[in-house]
């Protein structure tokens, strides 16, 4: 397997001007403002939050106490983590191999099938919710992780992500590997996956996020108190006649944190050049 030599780190190609940095910094300020606002809000009393204060308050501890006292925060965090985590693993497994299959072994029939599969993401979820509920309820999967993940393990979107990305995967590598006597599945696991860390990282990020933020579906299948997810917990905090905005925004901070951690862990794979060279 010494045939292939994928280029390692290359020297800089473009220099960055002041204009580019200014543009980037403006974009960053715009996208950070809401987080800044939420952090401020989480430290303030409800009345001050709605009056639009931008000064940190001293109510953080009280807000935390109220949040813990009125909700099952850690249970919801764990549930969301479990739902989104299992979904990410299964989704990536099923869709990456399918996306690879659709591209590397493409022919007229597979291309047609793929176009047809794309239809599956084009109908509003509200339209298929009732039949899906019938199925999930039939199999006794209410209040379960299985019920949560089943409808979205395989999504045309994720298959397409892997399919599109496989297009620029050099075919010479595959041919060389075949000559070396590697099986097809072996090529996928030992050659394709290691060189595609960036796309897997992107997929982990978005699938985890979609699972974590999914609201409409868990809203109907999660019925018992201990199966509640984070978006449901947040919705519950603004359901009553009185909404405490300080507590609400603190719960929102808890809700974004895991997603940011995942993204932060994954973004280091977005580095220039196909990183995992083959030995």
């Amino acid at each position: 397997m010494s045939v292939i030599n994928i280029n390692k780190k290359t020297k800089s190609t473009q220099s960055l001007g002041v204009g580019t940095y200014t543009f980037l910094i403006v974009a960053v300020i715009l996208s950070v403002f809401p987080l800044f606002w939420m952090v401020i809000a989480a430290t303030n009393k409800s009345v001050d939050v709605i009056s639009g204060t931008l000064i940190p308050g001293s109510n953080l501890a009280t807000n935390y106490k109220n949040l813990i006292g009125s909700t099952n925060l850690w249970q919801a965090m764990w549930n969301s983590f479990k739902y989104a985590g299992i979904m990410t693993v299964l989704s990536l497994l099923v869709c990456s191999i399918a996306g690879y299959g659709f591209e590397i072994y493409h022919d007229k029939h597979k291309d047609r099938l793929f176009s047809f599969l794309l239809l599956a993401m084009m109908i509003p979820f509200a339209a298929v919710m009732i039949p899906l509920y019938q199925m999930v309820s039939e199999y006794g999967l209410l209040n379960s992780t299985a019920g949560f993940v089943l409808p979205t393990i395989s999504t045309p979107f994720l298959i397409m992500l892997f399919r599109q990305n496989s297009r620029s995967f050099p075919h010479e590598i595959i041919d060389a590997a075949r000559i070396d006597g590697l099986s097809e599945i072996g090529i996928f696991i030992r050659i394709y996956i290691p060189t595609q860390k960036a796309v897997f990282a992107a997929a982990v990020t978005v699938v985890f996020m979609n699972g974590w933020n999914n609201y409409l579906w868990p809203k109907i299948i999660m019925q018992s108190n201990d199966s509640i997810s984070m978006p449901m917990l947040i919705a519950g905090l603004q359901s009553g006649y009185v909404t405490d905005y300080g507590v609400l925004m603190l719960s929102v901070l808890f809700c974004i944190l895991p997603m940011l951690i995942i993204f932060f862990a994954m973004q280091r794979y977005f580095t220039q050049g196909i990183t995992g060279s083959i030995k």
Partner: peptide
Amino acid sequence: EDQGDWNTLQTKLTTIASSGKLDS
């Protein structure tokens, strides 16, 4: 069993009733 908010409860009720799975 806390269902979060009224919209959630209504969505659940609608889905369950129209799917015919009244026992849930």
